[in-house]
């Protein structure tokens, strides 16, 4: 019982911190919107060879980008907790580390889901017509993607000694994962070796799954995307869990 309340407490903290920081909320929404409007308009004449315009095409990709940044950021934020001592307070409480990890993961995912949901509600900007079915099938997908990515962030945090490594993660993990994911162009256009790398990037499957659920069209079958996302999440939870339990 106390394990469940521990998960709840840690979840609550993540959400409270997010909601309280207005600047963070606004900037985390502004960035994707700039991408869609400015970048999307700049390339609006680019024919991606599917039945949708370029801005609509990149919309699910940009939602995935927002998920990618926020989720990994939430996961990695455990470094800050470590650096500023707060983690000690949780670690010394009579709750298991697995609960702490789950609380952190669910908390981080909740934050990304809130953010992605707002973006999806704004999809009329690019002319996407929402309906109840779209929302119903998109939300669980967003949750699945963000849980895997938050757990990835937590796993990365186990390898970092201090906050200095954070910029490294942005440059060497988040950006390549985003650019290779086909969020901005169909990966079919890539040379074979790059496309193969794209196919081992889990974000590719997130983008494809969201494209399927929001636009109703995708290059990869939804079953494959779902399978990969699910396996990715399980693997990340296990890796994150092992690292977290071993630390110290």
């Amino acid at each position: 019982m106390s394990e469940i309340s521990a998960i709840y407490v840690i979840w609550l903290r993540e959400v409270k911190r997010y909601v309280r920081e207005k600047a963070r909320v606004i900037s985390s929404l502004a960035m994707p919107i700039f991408w869609i409007i400015i970048f999307g308009s700049g390339f609006s004449r680019f024919n991606i060879g599917m039945n949708v315009g370029y801005r609509e095409f990149i919309f699910p990709g940009i939602v995935t980008m927002a998920l990618l940044f926020t989720s990994i950021g939430s996961g990695v934020s455990v470094i800050w907790d470590r650096e500023f001592g707060f983690l000690k307070e949780i670690l010394v409480a009579p709750v298991s580390r697995t609960s702490i990890l789950f609380g952190k993961m669910i908390g981080g995912s909740t934050v990304s889901v809130i953010q992605a949901s707002i973006l999806i509600l704004l999809s009329f900007i690019v002319g996407i017509k929402l309906n109840f079915l779209i929302i119903l099938r998109t939300l669980p997908l967003i949750l699945l993607i963000s849980m895997g990515l938050t757990a990835l962030g937590l796993s990365i945090a186990n390898f970092l000694e201090g906050h200095e490594g954070f910029q490294l993660i942005v440059n060497f993990i988040i950006m390549p994962m985003f650019l290779l994911s086909g969020a901005l162009f169909p990966i079919e256009g890539l040379p074979a070796w790059l496309r193969n790398i794209s196919l081992i990037d889990p974000v590719t499957y997130g983008v494809e799954a969201l494209r399927w659920s929001i636009l109703g069209t995708s290059n990869l079958p939804i079953g494959l995307s779902l399978g990969v996302l699910f396996i990715f999440m399980i693997c990340m939870v296990i890796i994150g869990g092992i690292g977290f339990n071993r630390k110290k």
Binding site: R17, G85, F86, L87, K88, E89
Partner: peptide, 9 residues
Amino acid sequence: FQDPSLDDR
């Protein structure tokens, strides 16, 4: 603890 371990937010 020696170092502060509060959540200041």
